[in-house]
Design a protein around this nucleic acid. Structure first.
Lengths: 208, 208, 208, 208
DNA sequence: CATGAATGAGGTTTCATTCAT
DNA sequence: CATGAATGAAACCTCATTCAT
């Protein structure tokens, strides 16, 4: 391997280290717990180094946002088996999303916060760019619903609209997990989650 | 009226002024736009005075959280007409929640943020106290669903679980409103919202 | 004395302390030696306190500039005895300026720097305000020259123009003092200075 | 030409590129606008490379100072026609200095700043070296004045002292140009300048 | 009891310089 | 020999909180 590649790999590694540090801090200490100093310490890089990889905190956040959306998209896309029935595909997507929200809790909390406040946080151009990645997430869902409508197992609906409802719902439910020790006491979160997926399927399948 | 009462009233007024100022700032400038100095300026009180009404910023946030939950509860409770059918009651609750999220946007964004991060933000005792108020919100919904199950228009479900799904979903959908200019482009938000309510009703009414 | 006055006096004292610290640092360590931290340390105030007296470094510099010009103006105005001849008045002004440049060396170096770079340093509005105070300095000189022209001891000249030349010259000469150990070695600075004043008088008195 | 020379030429070119970049930045953005990074970018060299030509920023400034003085000296020396009268030679020198201050504004501002603060900026040895080059500037003036004194058109004066006054004055006047939009409003700068030169000549020619 | 001046920890960011490649 | 990635000291500034008046 030529030296250029090695160096490149080192750069990538550092870049990743920075993003992981930032993401980790975000999860562990919340949005106010993220300081450039801490990111530097955790990623074991000099403070100035951070600024040669990212123009500032905002860019780090923007990058994480895009990454998060892309990762979710990948998870969802990977979850659907081509031959499966629309219902199963939707269930699989629900499951994948739940899995993601458990495995990459950090990303989820992060998106939660940034979807809420990104208009204030990011320059409008950046926000549009991020949202484009967010929109990709919907594709696997839309396809599954359209397929179901086409073959007649679902009632005719606007596939994108239902996708938004589905994602919004699951997101909202995931949000509730924070209340596990209080409002959710006595309820199993995953059951709640599956029930919610079932709820959407009920609606899609309901004649009327 | 004796002087004590008058003074009491003045104190209440100041307390309210502080909370309004804090809430207003939160809406207008986001979580980073709230500083004690600004709260003092807007509420037309001295900076030090704030601290004789609240122990600090955290207590202000906690108080606002409780208030927000209580207000939502009131809205929902007021929305249900005693004689209405379970379906109509649920529709009314959905409508009321949508209305609230429009009218009191500030509170909604606020809860969004604080439900997410309250574990880090508040001492555990405070958090439990807040969540208790959050839980009250569910009551009108639970009642409507239980009624529907009892009279047989809904399939037999765990009423609290469905309530959580319902609220979670609506909350998630509301969250999406932030994406109106990007992901939601071409979709009317309120339609999406009503569709979501319909979705739950579909599920509740679907025969097995 | 009522308490308000006392407090006011304390505020004034602190304000002065800040300005003195800044001026002192400027003299001792040069423009790069002035940091807000150091100003705070020397003035024995908290760092944040500085910012409640001045909006930032720029405002401190602007204030010092204005003060410097005003002080010089006072020195020059005080130097002229009403009954003295125009020549004597000009000599007195020269002497006063020399005296000032020795006694308030800091201010002089300061002006030196800020006249040079104020366009980049200050917002245009601020610069205009500062320069207005600078212009006042000329008044005593202009009056003396006009008087001399009127009574015929000076040849007819544009009084303001000659004033500018006079001040510019003395300022330039003062600048040279920095070179006392090298270029000026073997020359007594004050002699140089008086010679320069004489030079202007020669010109003003030269027939034709 | 042997390869050593070629390489040498490349080195010289780079050295010059660095100095030009530094000087240009100084002119365009002022003293705070000069960073090693920018010098590297503009001179199209690597950042590290700068350090193999100069030991650091200070040495770059020192070199520029020497260069500036040498350039001025050349300008002044070139201005005097051997056969001209002392008065004309002095006028020519004044004109040359004015021309230089317009054409090489950067150098002038630069000297302004560094003469003021060089004691703090440079190690004493460096400063002495720089000042030696500064002193050379005086030579053409001294010669003209001495000649004038010798042939009796000037009164007997200390030629070096008058030279210092002359240069100091012109420098001071040049300084004033910064105030063109405020204090100097309504005055033509070059007129002021020529008047100042005339002023010195008046004095030199004044009997006793 | 209301006030706001004072505080200083901690935030983000820049930049001269070094050193491995 | 040229390079530029890495570094961390140090800059400016904000803000929650305290406490003397």
């Amino acid at each position: 391997m030529e030296p250029g590649k090695l160096r490149q790999r080192g750069k990538d590694k550092r870049r990743r280290a920075i993003l992981e540090a930032a993401r980790g801090l975000l999860l562990e200490k919340g949005i106010d717990g993220v300081s450039m100093r801490q990111i530097a310490d955790i990623s074991e890089l000099g403070l100035g180094t951070i600024y040669s990889y990212f123009s500032g905190k905002t860019e780090i956040y923007a990058t994480l946002s895009v990454e998060a959306f892309d990762l979710i998209h990948e998870s969802l896309a990977a979850a659907v088996s081509p031959g499966a029935s629309p219902q199963d595909r939707i269930r699989a997507i629900g499951k994948a999303l739940l899995g993601f929200s458990v495995k990459h809790k950090a990303y989820f909390d992060f998106l939660d916060y940034f979807v809420s406040s990104s208009r204030r946080m990011f320059p409008v151009q950046t926000k549009i760019h991020i949202d484009k990645h967010g929109e990709k997430m919907l594709a696997p869902l839309i396809e599954a619903i359209e397929e179901g409508v086409k073959i007649g197992v679902f009632k005719p609906v606007d596939a994108k609209q239902y996708s938004l409802i589905f994602l919004g719902m699951l997101h909202g439910i995931t949000h509730l997990r924070k209340l596990q020790e209080t409002m959710l006491k006595g309820h199993r979160f995953d059951e709640l989650y599956h029930q919610a997926v079932g709820c959407i399927l009920d609606s899609l399948c309901s004649k009327q």
